[in-house]
Nucleic acid binder design. Structure first.
Lengths: 196, 196
DNA sequence: CTTTCAATTCGATACATAACTAATCAAATA
DNA sequence: TATTTGATTAGTTATGTATCGAATTGAAAG
């Protein structure tokens, strides 16, 4: 189960990782990383090389340090910045990847389903049969739930159950077959089991 | 040699890479990448999942696509976005790395040296001996150039050459020895060769 | 213990970005 | 061909960022 705390951790993690990419998302900061890679350097030195003021460079260095890409130490008068090599060894994919792979995704997919369901059902009845396949698929999957797997139904049974959703039972019946959610043999209908 | 065109290419490359990191630098866009990773998805679907308007999601998708992280195709009514897996397989280091490693760095290091030199020399004379080691090092390295490697100088020779820079020849002589740029044996001085 | 000097912080300005609503576009269906 | 509908663009607002000059800080040197 996803608890409230999990979600907070998850969001924060996400922020931290976005922050790291944001730190990398400026040409000056990429230059700084490359300059610091050859050897540790101090603020004024970088400012002279980059033709920027120390104030501006200090700002960029702070962002890089906050993202954990640089560390700094005092040397004589100077604040010397050094690259944290390990941070650069991961692939983009490793950082982008969210911790909970399956779980979260399933919860989220429901959001779209629910939106479609809410749009087409009112008080348990189907306002209108959607013309678009993706939406049709979703509302048919909802409707087919009233049929028990394994049980057999006559066409009259089916009609009686479908009319609760919409007057156009003929279309609904046809679509349920067409989308592979039900099958028929002459007058006998049954719900199709779907594999995961 | 670095030509003007090289520098333009280099800058543009830099911009492109910064742009790619910038595209990754937002929590919503990281979520989108993760959602699209499981399967291709369309704008409206993502909007529903993320509780954002289609317009906003469209904006994020455009940034990700421009960075080459997503491709899209039309499917029925929908614009379906798909992950470009290869783009995520590189390490941060590979992307941060500038094309010209040695060359550029050397040119840039000079910027700081030149700033220091300009600050302490006027009309070829040393205004003042810097107290800070890093700066002292730089100006001494400049001064020592007047001595030819391999040649021998008496203290009187040395003084005569150093007085052109500054009256305080005693200090200059002492520092040149101290910083390992020259060596002496009694009255004979010579310039020290440095290895690369 | 005062002075020096690089680094940082502050304040201001110009520019960029994220979010929404509303308008427009373009493709698929009827 | 007209209509539907998802996607995008345009317009707007609030927030965030990059840059500089000036003021402040704090550590090292005399």
């Amino acid at each position: 189960m996803t608890t409230l705390n999990d979600n907070i951790d998850y969001r924060e993690n996400l922020e931290v990782r976005a922050q790291m990419f944001k730190a990398l998302g400026h040409p000056v900061r990429l230059l700084i990383l490359n300059l610091v890679k050859t050897k540790p350097r101090h603020t004024e030195e970088l400012a002279a090389i980059l033709s920027l003021t120390p104030a501006t460079v200090s700002h960029h260095l702070a962002l890089l340090a906050e993202a954990g890409l640089l560390t700094s130490r005092k040397d004589q008068y100077y604040q010397v910045y050094q690259l944290v090599e390990e941070k650069l060894q991961k692939t983009i994919a490793e950082i982008v990847q969210v911790p909970q792979p399956g779980l979260k995704a399933n919860v989220e997919v429901d959001a779209y389903r629910q939106k479609v369901v809410r749009a087409f059902f009112r008080h348990g009845r189907l306002i209108q049969i959607p013309s678009q396949q993706k939406k049709k698929q979703i509302i048919l999957e909802e409707i087919v739930k009233v049929f028990s797997p394994g049980e057999r139904y006559t066409e009259w049974d089916v009609n009686k159950m479908l009319v609760d959703f919409n007057e156009d039972v003929a279309s609904l019946r046809r679509y349920l077959i067409e989308f592979g959610l039900m099958q028929r043999d002459h007058d006998i209908y049954w719900r199709v089991e779907h594999s995961a």
